[in-house]
Design a protein around this nucleic acid. Structure first.
Length: 198
DNA sequence: GCGAGGATTAACT
DNA sequence: GTTAATCCTCGCT
């Protein structure tokens, strides 16, 4: 199956965030592949979005958000967690979709190894947990998910899932924008058993 | 150079 | 429901 290409990501950030629900995040580990269906995303844009890291213009940290669509923007937060985003919009226009949660569908052993203390249902039901399960860290910042060369981390198209839009979580500004998208629990549960989001 | 705060999580009471 | 953990980034001096 072919990965999502740059044209998929080079669109309005909110549209990409919706479209990613149901798509499959796939990671190549030594010896095999692990994959999970994306069930929760949030859209972050630029000047019009006070909650976005890109709101006040480019900095060394957020420069990836201003780059080519399909890039991976990883940042470190609260002294202990990483969060991963996919860059959207035309180059020069900031935008990224935060991947917040997913349901494992392949390579459970890898996820279990990366989340040794958590039960399966809580392996990746939050942004920090998702990056932990996929072993994503700052070394992945700037990785080109749409690049035909790299095989470490890609996103594959999946069956579209019904979703709901809600306000974003954990932010103090821009709280009124309904830019969080989460798969309908019923639809997601058919993929790999029940799941829940905190 | 310094200080504040953060797109969170897990372990408490 | 409350809070500690923990460190990078940014903005200001």
């Amino acid at each position: 199956m072919e990965r999502l290409d740059r044209d998929f990501f080079r669109r309005n950030t909110v549209e990409v965030a919706k479209s990613l629900i149901g798509c499959v995040l796939a990671r190549r580990f030594e010896g095999g592949i692990a994959a999970a269906v994306i069930t929760e995303t949030e859209a972050y844009r630029g000047e019009d979005d006070p909650a976005s890291h890109a709101h006040r213009g480019p900095t060394p940290r957020n420069r990836i958000m201003f780059g080519e669509a399909g890039g991976l923007y990883v940042y470190f937060s609260y002294g202990m967690h990483h969060c991963m985003n996919v860059v959207t919009e035309e180059e020069g226009q900031p935008g990224a979709v935060l991947l917040r949660a997913a349901v494992p569908v392949q390579g459970h052993g890898y996820f279990r190894a990366n989340r040794p203390r958590a039960p399966e249902k809580q392996w990746m039901n939050g942004p920090g947990k998702l990056t932990a399960a996929f072993a994503i860290n700052l070394a992945f910042n700037g990785l080109d998910l749409a690049g035909p060369k790299q095989e470490e981390l890609i996103i594959l198209p999946g069956a579209p899932l019904p979703w709901t839009a809600t306000p974003r979580i954990g932010i103090s500004k821009g709280v009124e924008l309904p830019w969080r998208f989460l798969a309908d629990p019923g639809a997601a549960s058919g993929l790999a058993g029940s799941w829940e989001t905190q």
